[in-house]
Design a protein around this nucleic acid. Structure first.
Length: 867
RNA sequence: GCCGACUUGGCGAAAUGGCAGACGCAAAGGACUUAAAAUCCUUUAUCCCGAAAGGGGUGUGUGGGUUCGAGUCCCACAGUCGGUACCA
């Protein structure tokens, strides 16, 4: 920012008058004025069915931003990019007459506020409120057309009351395997409802982060370290709430097909869910009345299985280990459990493991094969046990080589390979499978296993159930109490469960959550205590898009009418019409929200199966050095400073002009100056400075018929901007508006009709400038009634786009040699005739033999010659 | 390792298989001005021939292919940036 000609910035801030005269156009005066007007008169309020001003004929358009976490750092230029894109769409659809829902709110629970509170002693509610006020002011200073009457915060008891209510829906539901849908738990007829609830308690090992004093979801652990802060994470068993998202794995994959999402994001979700088809095979254990079931994707290689490996935590390990190996097995298990995930990953290069002393029988050939334990087999995936086929699996191969275990090839291929071969081929050394292709062999062995009752075809998923509790203060408390060691739900009437007022919410240093210190709050009744965990930050963002449809509803999380209207299908699979946000939420937020939505859909609370019909990821804005913006690099651009220097419209327009929305792109301050100059040129289309230095309407303006060229330019611009907005190609829409503006800057007199058509086109991009010009023009001329924000999107007329003559490029062997102008109505023969009668074309063809002539009407002619 | 995205002037970029570089930035020259800023006009991929007007060659990461014609489609390779990582 220091660079450039603005060396009087100190004076600017002390003398308002100075700064006003120095700007290319007086945005510091009118931008705040219009922002106040829009907010004050609720210009962008959306009406719901049943509201007095509701227009039943209007199409609905729900355009949503990923709502921000209101951090203390304030708004980032990256926020501005996505929010400007959606604002353009919202304003465009309003001008087209649609009923537009464009809301904003705050994802305000979360660890940073709590950690800041611990450091400063201020209650997170205070800092959160302050940050929200700051964020709201910043968003309003950009002129975003949100319906502020629908503002919500996840920390508001009126909001999290319903977050807790949805949790109870999950708690009180199960997935009926017959229908594959969630149903009320009352339809479950088994003996142990707690074992099938969608929200359940688990004591399995979880990701515990001692530094943060909380457990984390798998998704929040990166390379064995916490995603937030990068602290080491270890695995330890703890009593935790889990959500049974795995019951929805299949549908979460299948329903991606109908969504207008980037293919790369769909792929990311598919990979995360990690569906793999294979088989479970049962191996009898020698000398013990037990069997091990393994999961494999290559049942066709069963004849090549030369040993089994169990995860160290596998429940059978103790029962099968023989006395001779007991010591080795116990110490290996201990070593594994004390290792953090980080160490386990670090040591992954060397395979380790120990022999249990037990043997299993390979069901196909009755071979006696040893059973090992090793930490390269994970307890949470498949059955926690594998059959090792070292000839055809790299990990098994490496392990077999390290521990000198037999390697039997059972698949051949014509291609040469080194070490082990993992691809598909022809089965050998495999008894009744010999000679079969891998695909056929798989089918045959699965049938065989199923007939003999030794196993069956099955599908396994990488996706794990969602660890849903955190040991934090600043989150939604669970609507659960414990009594005599068992849990039960609170009734709807007892919601919301608000967190207790606490002075000290520091981590306890143990696995006990901070809420344990609020002893009065914890004591629910004589014999009942409240659940001490809180929900993760994702909870609030899982359903906020629904609440925006009906934010003030006291009786329901969303009314049926509002849900059907705003989330309704209108010919698509339904949901939010456009959702814009960063790729960082590709698997976490977007998967969790889809899961909750499907549960609520199954239970009859919603009418569509997916929340977000169309998703677009904005690219990252980099510093002017091409690196990711960060405080340590010192390349962070502060939106407030850009607004002060060039205005909100310039910032909005620049971020849209930088390049395609989806791409990452580096910041350039001189680039901002470029669009700033463009906006100043638009200003001067209508305004001029008088002798006193005041802006007045330009004398060049006149009720003057457009020339054909001017009309063509305007209508071409309407057409291109319309198409480009719908395809989110904002950069090319802006360049077309620049071309159009340049055409009119020199026009004298300047037809007012041009401004009547042009200003609405620009208004979604630069709403303040267009509003101001519209208003000033209305003082003297007709056709500028009301607000520009509430005017009409113009319609182009194809007739005006036509031209009389077209310049054809004449290519000879693909190289352009001449340009020849021909009437637009000329047919193929006429064009050919015109070209061959041209003397300079003839000169090029001198002494050559014409092999072929290609005429592309309206574009070019290619003459293929030899010689 | 695996998966994905990307690669076009000095820079950000544009181009339904049809005249590559629109639009903007930066740079250079000019007009206006006492001067500057602002504004306006002109030039600007690159090499060669020419005093000039003009003409010709080469060019979209690299190498092949399809086509009358490829930045765009196909194959192989390289580089950059994301994501992921013993998932059997």
């Amino acid at each position: 920012m220091a660079k450039s000609s603005f060396s009087f910035s100190i004076e600017d801030s002390t003398s308002n008058q100075m700064s006003l005269t120095r700007k290319h156009y007086p945005f510091p005066e009118f931008e705040p004025r219009w922002q106040q007007h829009w907010v004050g008169t609720q210009v962008f309020r959306a009406s719901n069915p049943g509201d007095p001003d509701f227009r039943p004929g209007a199409k609905k358009y729900f355009v949503l931003d990923m709502f921000p976490y209101p951090s203390g750092d304030g708004l980032h230029v990256g926020h501005v990019e996505g929010y400007t894109a959606t604002d353009i769409l919202a304003r465009y659809h309003r001008l087209k007459g649609d009923n537009v829902l464009h809301p904003m709110g705050w994802d305000a629970f979360g660890l940073p506020a709590e950690q800041y509170a611990i450091k400063t002693g201020q209650h997170p509610r205070i800092t959160t409120e302050r940050n929200i006020n700051n964020f709201r002011a910043q968003l309003q200073s950009l002129g975003f057309s949100y319906d502020w009457s629908r503002e919500i915060s996840t920390t508001d008891p009126e909001y999290f009351k319903w977050t807790q209510w949805i949790f109870l829906q999950l708690y009180n539901a199960w997935v009926n395997p017959l229908t594959n849908k969630a149903e009320p738990i009352s339809t479950y007829t088994g003996s142990d409802p707690d074992s099938v609830r969608l929200a359940y308690v688990s004591n399995k090992p979880v990701n515990w982060c001692p530094e943060l004093g909380t457990v984390l979801a798998n998704e929040e652990v990166v390379d064995g370290k916490s995603e937030v802060g990068g602290f080491p994470v270890e695995r330890r068993p703890m009593r935790q709430w889990m959500l049974r998202i795995t019951s929805y794995a299949e549908r979460l994959i299948a329903d991606l097909d109908g969504l207008e999402w980037p293919e790369s994001i769909k792929l990311l979700q598919r990979n995360w869910i990690g569906r793999s088809e294979g088989a479970e095979v049962r191996f009898e254990i020698e000398g013990v009345d037990a069997s091990v079931t393994v999961f494999t994707t290559r049942p066709d290689t069963l004849f090549g299985a030369t040993y089994l490996v169990l995860a160290p935590e596998h429940p059978l390990v103790e029962a099968i280990t023989n006395t001779g190996q007991l010591k080795a097995v116990t110490s290996y298990k201990k070593a594994c459990s004390s290792k953090s995930d980080l160490e386990r990953t670090d040591l992954a290069k060397e395979k380790s493991g120990v022999f249990t002393g037990a043997y299993a029988m390979n069901p196909v050939n009755h071979e006696r094969i040893p059973i090992w334990i090793a930490d390269y087999v994970l307890t949470g995936y498949g059955t926690g046990a594998i059959m090792a086929v070292p000839a055809h699996d790299e990990r098994d191969h490496e392990f077999a080589v390290a521990f000198d275990l037999p390697i039997i090839p059972v698949v051949t291929t014509a291609d040469a390979f080194e070490g082990c071969f993992c691809g598909e081929g022809i089965a050998v050394n495999s008894g009744f499978l010999n000679g079969l292709q891998t695909l056929e062999a798989k089918a045959k062995i699965i049938t065989w296993l199923e007939e003999k009752g030794l196993g069956q075809g099955t599908i396994s998923y990488k996706l794990r159930d969602w660890l849903f509790s955190r040991q934090r203060y600043w989150g939604e408390p669970f609507p659960i109490v414990w009594e005599n060691g068992s849990h039960r739900a609170l009734s709807h009437e007892e919601l919301p469960v608000e967190p207790p007022e606490m002075e000290d919410f520091k981590p306890t240093g143990t696995a006990e959550p901070p809420l344990s210190k609020a002893s009065e709050w914890v004591r629910y009744a004589e014999t009942a205590q409240r659940e001490l965990n809180t929900m993760p930050q994702w909870a609030g963002s899982c359903w906020y898009y629904l609440r925006f449809c009906d934010p003030k509803n006291k009786d329901r999380f969303i009314s049926a009418e509002a849900e059907q209207y705003w989330m309704g299908s209108q010919g698509t699979t339904g949901g939010v019409d456009l959702y814009v946000g960063g790729t960082e939420h590709a698997v976490l937020h977007l998967l969790y929200a889809r899961f909750w939505h499907k549960v609520l859909f199954d239970l009859g609370h919603l009418t569509t199966p997916e929340p977000f019909q169309r998703l677009v990821n904005q690219g990252m804005i980099l510093g002017d050095d091409g690196q990711k913006m960060s405080k340590s690099r010192g390349n962070v651009v502060n939106p407030d400073e850009v607004i002060a220097e060039y205005g909100a419209d310039s910032l909005r327009l620049y971020e849209m002009f930088m390049g395609p929305l989806e791409h990452g792109k580096p910041w350039s301050t001189t680039g901002v100056e470029g669009v700033y100059r463009f906006l100043a040129r638009v200003w001067r289309l209508a305004m001029t400075e008088n002798h006193e230095g005041n802006y007045i309407l330009s004398e060049d303006l006149a009720e003057q018929e457009l020339t054909n060229a001017q009309r063509r330019m305007l209508h071409a611009t309407i057409k291109k901007v319309t198409h480009d907005i719908e395809s989110l190609s904002f950069n090319t829409a802006i360049s077309q508006m620049m071309i159009c503006t340049n055409e009119f800057t020199t026009a004298k007199p300047r037809p007012l009709e041009a401004l009547r058509l042009f200003l609405p086109l620009l208004s979604p991009f630069a709403p303040h400038l267009t509003e101001e010009l519209w208003s000033r023009l209305s003082t003297k001329f007709s056709g500028f009634d009301g607000l520009a924000s509430q005017s009409q999107w113009p319609q182009w007329n194809e007739e005006y786009l036509t031209v009389d003559e077209i310049s054809y490029a004449v290519q000879i062997n693909g190289k352009v040699r001449e340009h020849i102008t021909v009437s637009v109505s000329a047919d193929k023969e006429t064009v050919e005739k015109a070209i061959f009668s041209n003397p300079s074309v003839a000169a090029h063809l001198e002494g050559k033999e014409i092999k072929k002539v290609v005429v592309v009407l309206g574009r070019l002619v290619n003459i293929v010659v030899v010689g």
